[in-house]
Design a protein around this nucleic acid. Sequence first.
DNA 1: GGGCATTGTGGAATCGTTTCCACCGAATGA
DNA 2: TCATTCGGTGGAAACGATTCCACAATGCCC
Lengths: 370, 370
Amino acid sequence: MKPTAPFKRARASIKDVATRAGCGIATVSRVLNASGPTSVATRDRVLAAADELGFQRSDIGRSLRTQRTRTIGCVVPSIANPVFAQALQGLQRAARSAGHQLIVSASNYALDQELEAVTTLLGKQVDAVVLTVSDPASSQALDLVRERELPHALMFNHAPGLAPCASIDNASAASLVADAFVEHGHRQLGFLALRFGSSDRSRQRFEGFGARLHAHGFPPPVLLEVDDDPALLADHLPSLLKAHRHLTGIFASNDMLALAVMQATRTLGLRVPDDLSIVGFDGIAIGQMVEPTLATVQTDPEAMGVAAAETVLAALREDDQSSSCDQTRFHFRPGGSLSRCRGDQADSGEVAASPLPSPTHPREPSLKKD
Amino acid sequence: MKPTAPFKRARASIKDVATRAGCGIATVSRVLNASGPTSVATRDRVLAAADELGFQRSDIGRSLRTQRTRTIGCVVPSIANPVFAQALQGLQRAARSAGHQLIVSASNYALDQELEAVTTLLGKQVDAVVLTVSDPASSQALDLVRERELPHALMFNHAPGLAPCASIDNASAASLVADAFVEHGHRQLGFLALRFGSSDRSRQRFEGFGARLHAHGFPPPVLLEVDDDPALLADHLPSLLKAHRHLTGIFASNDMLALAVMQATRTLGLRVPDDLSIVGFDGIAIGQMVEPTLATVQTDPEAMGVAAAETVLAALREDDQSSSCDQTRFHFRPGGSLSRCRGDQADSGEVAASPLPSPTHPREPSLKKD
DNA sequence: GGGCATTGTGGAATCGTTTCCACCGAATGA
DNA sequence: TCATTCGGTGGAAACGATTCCACAATGCCC
């Protein structure tokens, strides 16, 4: 008896099955994978032996040989964010139905963690990665993946040409919101962002929003930026709103933020939508449960996850690797939080694109721009 | 040139580093792991060679040898559920800071998927698993893990003695809710569950709720069960509420359900809390953003994830494997959705435990019990 | 009856790492 | 001075699978 047993050999290996079945390991492998001719007699013997030994194939040995781990790595800014959680759900489901497992990691919206997570995943030799990065154009993490020629896809990031991505066109989605505000006669608008510096989605929405307003001949929206820390929202928001009393509508870059604004209005004694109209983004379920219901852009994060999975799985099957951009559906979802502007004189839905640039230009010099 | 290149050898192996550095692979391994004596000269040569070749160690080879994958498997009913998503976030963070990766899988509240997911994880040779199962007492998945003597922990499931678990005592938490209702003079109470049959949490809360009401001398709560499909909630809830008009308070087994009830009351023209008091469970952030704010039991899913991670990581480090049950904190969070019962004659907070069993027993025979 | 594909089989190489063991030279001890 | 440690090193054996290749036995066709 040895003093130290380095590994407890709980599991039976393919060799054990072979000796028990009285054949070579090659035969066992062939039987188990149906990868070659075997006589029914040995086939039965092998199967019986495997069963008796409770044999389960080791994915490590297989991976070493085949150089495939049947594993997909995924990095998102935050797992707890419901939008990413839904995407992960779709991703996981699609991956599993193709026999792949999902390794997830959170970058916490930090560039260094983004890179570190991808590096670790590469070390684990995942077959493919699915990422949501801070900025696709400058992401070292993405560069690394491309350099290694690893099948990959982006989620939420909209970067056509740069990498395959499952996303929506944030700019056009935001322009729907601009249209909605314009239709309801709002002029003095704000865009509220949580992590403007580290989210290209937020920036794309802001730009799409502003561009469409501009096309309507409307003044650009005020950029309202709040702290990273969601816990400070309750303190910060009311003062921010008070400082921008003149705004009649706010476009929040996500629904949680929009709901937080609705809460803040209550503490200020403002009414939604009478005193302030609010539109969110994402279309989370709770938006329909609150009073008034939240007007928002309805997206489908789970579909994005599925699309991203299918992109990399397709690349894994053959070397087709077409850098396609899967556009998932989105649409404007009306809600009670957006109504006609109180000071609006136009009665019809038709709104004249007033060419006069407002002298009371709402862009505040005090606000951070990026 | 061969017709088919089976594997593209992009990565440099430890052997390549060895030849380039002019030494044996054993030396390279020692340098890279600081696992043995090396002269500074060779150390530098090896490090330089590794750097030049862009060497990254293959976790597969290492895992094959060490029989450790530095990987933790996790199975939750649903990734998209914010409560589990938060737990995953904590789990992932704790796992990563200990150098472990997280493989996640969803069981979709189905027993067979639960088992299948765990089987797959075992095949992947994860070092440990963290599970949230339908019922710890009868879970084949849990049995399998225990049989294999794999380090493991449960999340959300409260099963002291059965397995290490990071959870709250659902029954005592629910009894807090009972106390709150009693304090506010409510007698006719309902318990609303979404997946009563496949969630021991739900059952434990129901039992704790009923037991405490009983201790107060109050009649047992009506069990209201709704369909699995959350999409049907909006249709189903109003009729359910109408059928139980006599109830003055409802305890929903989670916050989303509670919010859905609040929405349903609006369609019925009922006011919360004047016509109906509502208490939820979990303490999600949105509960504080709605009007009225949601009374609930505040829990900390992320802390559960962290606790579960620490349990298995500790078991991984040494064979201490103490079957501890980490209790995470919880407390009753008051909110505007719970107020004094309209028909309550008692004026003080003190409520006499009326010993008389109500003749109008609210338990409905038409309702499914399990 | 002699080639010849075909079927079933096992030996052995291979994947990339860790680690045991043997070895050599130099330093240290008695 | 000889024995003994010790720092530094490389060879080689695992780990558990897949798969190429060789080889035997069988069937078939001319």
